[in-house]
Simulated assay, not measured.
Amino acid sequence: MTLNYKRILVAVNQSEGAELALQKAVATAKRNDARLDILRVIDVNSLQYKAGDQTLINGQEIVDIEEDNEKFLLQIKERLVTENHLKPEQVFVHLRFGDPKKVILNDFQPEYHNDLLVIGGTEMSLFKRMVAGSVASYVPKAAQCDVLITKK
């Protein structure tokens, strides 16, 4: 059975798992001549406090985080167009703030009507997965489209 995807969503961060998910999404987009939406979700819970400090993050730090992540996404797009030979009009980058699970499933995917979601397998420890739950363990259960979870 051949699956023909037209709108692929890949969630990325700066992890090895996300890079592998991006590679799989690119290969699938090329095979299907599909639109590729690359989404980076900044977890607002991780922004509330600086690591190891109880100081609230300030507005300028949020602006800096946003600018750094926009640059990261644009570099990905440029790499995919130049090295992977995707068409510029085929690749779209998006930055959102919020709970990654909710943003991916409740906001982004329904808005853009993606028919395939590609994510990297979790790199969390067992304890973190038990406490917070991972995106990779939550998304397949709740997604309204096909999901591909990549493994190392």
Rank of each mutant, 00 (worst) to 15 (best):
K128V: 07
L56H: 05
I76R: 03
V93C: 12
L9I: 04
Q48K: 09
T150F: 01
E19V: 04
I38G: 08
N58H: 07
Y5K: 09
A18M: 03
D146V: 06
T2F: 07
L80S: 05
D33T: 10
T122I: 12
D107W: 02
V26R: 02
R31G: 13
V131F: 14
D68S: 11
K152H: 10
T122D: 14
V63A: 13
V103H: 06
A132R: 00
Q54C: 05
V147D: 12
Q90W: 02
D53L: 08
E123M: 12
I104L: 15
L22M: 11
D115G: 11
F108C: 14
E70W: 05
N84M: 07
L148N: 08
S15C: 07
T28S: 04
Q14E: 12
N45E: 08
Q48L: 12
T82Q: 11
S137M: 08
D99W: 00
I62A: 10
N69C: 07
I119L: 14
E123S: 15
C145T: 12
H85M: 10
P140R: 06
N106T: 13
I62D: 03
D33K: 13
L148M: 15
L105E: 08
E19G: 10
V135E: 04
A25D: 02
T28Y: 00
K6D: 03
E19F: 03
L3V: 09
R40E: 03
E78D: 09
E19Q: 13
A51P: 03
K30R: 06
L117K: 05
L9V: 09
T122H: 13
V12F: 07
T28P: 00
H85I: 06
R7E: 13
N114K: 05
N58W: 02
I76W: 02
R40T: 08
R129M: 11
V63N: 08
E19P: 02
R129E: 14
H94K: 09
V103Y: 04
C145K: 00
R7H: 13
G120P: 03
A27T: 02
Q75S: 07
M1A: 15
Y49M: 14
V10Y: 01
L86I: 10
V26W: 01
D43W: 02
F108N: 10
M1D: 14
F92V: 12
L9M: 12
K101H: 06
R35P: 00
Q54S: 08
H94I: 04
T2C: 06
P110Y: 11
Q109V: 13
K152A: 14
N84D: 11
V44C: 03
E67F: 05
A25V: 01
A11H: 06
E66R: 15
Y138H: 12
D37H: 14
S137C: 05
V63R: 15
H85T: 09
I65G: 01
E70N: 13
F72G: 12
R129P: 02
L73A: 08
Q48P: 01
T122S: 15
A143G: 13
E66H: 10
S125W: 01
A51N: 05
Y112W: 14
V41K: 09
G98A: 06
L20T: 07
K50P: 00
N32L: 05
E83Q: 15
Q48Y: 08
Q144T: 13
R31F: 05
Y49A: 15
I65N: 04
